[in-house]
């Protein structure tokens, strides 16, 4: 399904350039999604080798960012795109930033996995990490899918999901604070869990941004900094 008719330009070379941008962005998305998956798995299982792999692969994410920025700049300079083409290029440029930041956050989670390793599986915070990790991974998966299919409604559902991740995160924080008060010897360890939770929550925020870019790309609507209800109304009213 291609609502944007990327393949309908009179210039076939332009079709190729835009399609390449989209494909590359999705490739980058795939890599970053794998990074998050591995980071979450490493912190759950205490698998330090997997965590190391995430840290090493971060370079590849950075390479993608540079490559995609270059390509997008070239399309802007060469084609001076307008309307949906312009929105696509802008959405790619913005999504690349968010993906790169997600990569950074995944690396933080991996570092916390190493710091936390060697502790028992029943350690405090494990449930919260698993729970929020799973929610964020689902968001990531559905967000990239919404981008791939240029699906504004699906993107909006991911934005919705982020609101519930934010709520889960707040609850988890309160839990962690309680643990620390109950057992001050745990403070430095629980702090590491907190950092990892924080990184996961930030990943959710970045996925949300990407989905906002999708809505802009597909509908030309800016739904940043407004409530979910307002965003829904905007999309429905169109």
């Amino acid at each position: 399904m291609d609502k944007l008719h990327l393949d309908r330009h009179i210039s076939r070379q332009f079709n190729v350039e835009l399609e390449a941008l989209r494909t590359q962005l999705l490739e980058m998305g795939g890599l970053v999604e794998q990074q998050v998956t591995d980071a979450v798995a490493s912190i759950e299982s205490g698998d330090t080798a997997l965590a190391e792999k995430v840290i090493v692969n971060e370079d590849r994410v950075d390479d993608f960012e540079i490559e995609l920025d270059e390509q997008a700049t070239l399309v802007l300079a060469r084609r001076q795109p307008a309307a949906s083409d312009l929105r696509l290029v802008l959405a790619v440029i913005k999504a690349v930033r968010d993906l790169e930041r997600i990569g950074d956050e995944a690396q933080k989670v991996a570092k916390m996995a190493i710091a936390l390793s060697g502790e028992g599986a029943n350690r405090r915070g494990a449930t919260e990490l698993r729970h929020i990790g799973a929610s964020v991974l689902t968001m990531m998966n559905q967000g990239l899918d919404a981008f791939a299919r240029f699906d504004a409604e699906a993107a909006l559902r991911v934005v919705e999901a982020d609101e519930s991740v934010d709520r889960e995160y707040k609850t988890a924080i309160r839990e962690m604070v309680t643990y620390m008060m109950e057992d001050p010897r745990e403070i430095s360890r629980v702090m590491n869990v907190l950092w990892a939770l924080r990184a996961l929550e930030r990943i959710g925020d970045h996925v949300r941004n990407i989905c906002e870019h999708v809505v802009y790309l597909v509908r030309g609507l800016d739904i940043r900094h407004i409530s979910l209800d307002e965003a829904e109304a905007k999309i429905l009213n169109q």
């Binding site: 008719h5 309908r8 330009h9 009179i10 210039s11 332009f14 795109p81 307008a82 309307a83 949906s84 083409d85």
Partner: peptide, 10 residues
């Protein structure tokens, strides 16, 4: 039609 024209589509 406007979109097609300004973006150079058929």
């Amino acid at each position: 039609l406007t979109e097609a024209y300004i973006t150079g589509r058929f």
